[in-house]
Design a protein around this nucleic acid. Structure first.
Lengths: 175, 175
DNA sequence: CCAATATACATCGGCACCGAGGTATGCTTC
DNA sequence: GAAGCATACCTCGGTGCCGATGTATATTGG
């Protein structure tokens, strides 16, 4: 998730670590803040993989910066991750939102629609959070207001996204 | 998140690992399936911490079972985690939903309302996913339909939950 | 009768993440 | 001119998670 965000942000423009940290924090930081001890090792990993290159520059405000540039390999990696996302990227909302934030970088509308369809399929399959033995339980069945709320919120959420997905897929197909 | 779910399920009744695995999978498995290599070490940790005890029983269908019982310490730990959740339990939807699934086990309505208020405060504070320099960007500002969708879905989602939170807090306060 | 499947538990190496700590620079404010 | 803060980068130990792998039993289907 973090690596995808880094690839995605660098796709737009070269950035140094500190700037990247702020952008990543804006994107997903309210859910889970990004620690320095996570970001810098990630950058190091990605440099070792050949996805980014680093160039030292004198710091504008303070200490010298190491500006990160996306390489061609990094570009290819981004497209691969956007076009062939792993299952958790589809099912986990946090990961999915990160993917969505950079999906425009997958040039082909057909490929974009295919990714949206995977999410659509996931949201359309019936899921039950709680079971009594083998039988799925409906929201009305339990007295617990919190579990009722949980199901109600999950339902409202997925309805909103389903509507958007269907409209956007239709739009992409029409091009 | 996993440990909270285990404590929560065992609060209702003793369960063996395999049964626990199915219940945890139903609750959060569609988002992120639980691997055996995650569940069993977690049980072991929790047994070492004194939150659960294990009792061997002949298997009903197959291999012998190790039935898990919540101890008094485990009960206290559950209440502590429900009543004083860490920040990520409030902000991360996956964790929050898990907490909500077991919040009824926090007996006191006032304490329950206090937890809901923390989530309310979190959802009420304005968040912007993207910035241009220092300026937050509104959904209409970018042409990217995916980012527009991302913001629209996030907004719809939080509206649904806000309404439920306010209603439920009012209800709990009225008791 | 054999294979496949579901039940049931467990370990191990690798890896990402986190918090804590460390280093250094330049600007602003008192 | 000292203190405090924002900028900017990095390491290290601990922990939890994951996939792969292993072991064993009972039922079901061909």
């Amino acid at each position: 998730m973090l690596e995808l965000a880094i690839l995605g942000f660098l796709r737009d423009q070269p950035l140094h670590g500190y700037d990247l940290r702020k952008r990543v924090a804006a994107l997903m930081g309210h859910v889970r803040p990004v620690a320095d001890g996570t970001l810098y090792p990630a950058i190091k990993r990605m440099a070792a993989a050949g996805w980014v290159t680093r160039k030292d520059e004198p710091g504008a405000a303070a200490a010298p910066r190491r500006v990160l540039y996306l390489t061609e390999e990094g570009h290819a990696e981004l497209e691969r991750r956007l076009g062939e996302p792993a299952e958790p990227d589809i099912s986990d909302e946090n990961r999915w939102f990160t993917l969505l934030a950079f999906l425009r970088h997958l040039g082909d509308p057909r490929a974009q629609a295919a990714v949206l369809r995977r999410r659509l399929t996931f949201l359309e399959e019936p899921t039950s959070f709680f079971y009594e033995g083998d039988r799925p339980m409906a929201a009305e069945e339990f007295a617990d207001p919190f579990r009722q709320g949980l199901l109600a919120i999950a339902h409202a959420t997925s309805q909103a996204e389903l509507a958007w997905l269907r409209a956007t897929i239709a739009d992409l197909d029409g091009r």
